[in-house]
Design a protein around this nucleic acid. Structure first.
Lengths: 112, 112
DNA sequence: CTCCGGTTACAAAAAAGTGCGTCATTTACT
DNA sequence: AGTAAATGACGCACTTTTTTGTAACCGGAG
């Protein structure tokens, strides 16, 4: 059994956001639309394959919108959608939580 | 190069929460402490190996606390820590966001 | 013999990295 | 002027790495 559809929105949201790229891409798209290779330069350690895959996933989830300008050297840009912009503060909150709870993690590590 | 430490708290938080188990476990621990096999029953599709691994990860991150009661049939329970409880509403917010943006995803899929 | 809460070793599956090709235009070299 | 190389945004195939599952084993009690 391949685990049927999960009735849990949290689980589905996490499937979308899992891994280190989705949230980072959201972060870099926050200032405004960016093009493919621009995103690669923002984050040199992602491979072009991963970048396309992640962007498609985010597009399918409706958090980014892909716009292809027809023309010469092929221009495409990616921008946050409305729901993508709503997602950003929630992700920021997770980052803040991690920073705030740094002390407790350190305490735990120190006590080990 | 194994990708040095990421200076980004969001990325680190997401590494912790990635996958479908961490948030689900947080969810099931929300009502109160639970024992190992209780968590397995809550979520039958997780393997006991994964459950131990995920619990250790969450423990190392300081979001759950493992308590072993010495005695007869070996009792261990897992409970949310303070930072774990702070994390719960943030995760819930992600679930809410997913539910709210369901319409936009549907629209996108329909337009394809 | 089974339950509880694991650990360890091995295997299967999934995710990610690498490199080549593409298409049309632009720039660079000689 | 002619050829070569680069750009932007990928797709495809192959390999490597990481994650997850499976199964067996542990110890002590009922």
């Amino acid at each position: 059994m391949k685990t049927a559809v999960s009735p849990c929105p949290i689980e589905e949201a996490m499937v979308l956001l899992s891994g280190r790229w989705p949230t980072l891409l959201l972060y870099y798209l926050q200032p405004g639309p960016k093009r493919f290779n621009e995103l690669r330069r923002d984050n040199p350690s992602i491979s072009h394959r991963m970048l396309t895959l992640e962007l498609r996933k985010l597009e399918a989830a409706g958090v980014v919108r892909r716009t292809a300008h027809p023309g010469y050297p092929l221009r495409v840009d990616y921008a946050l959608t409305a729901s993508g912009r709503k997602l950003v503060p929630l992700i920021d909150a997770l980052g803040d939580w991690w920073s705030e709870s740094a002390g407790e993690r350190a305490a735990f590590v120190a006590s080990a």
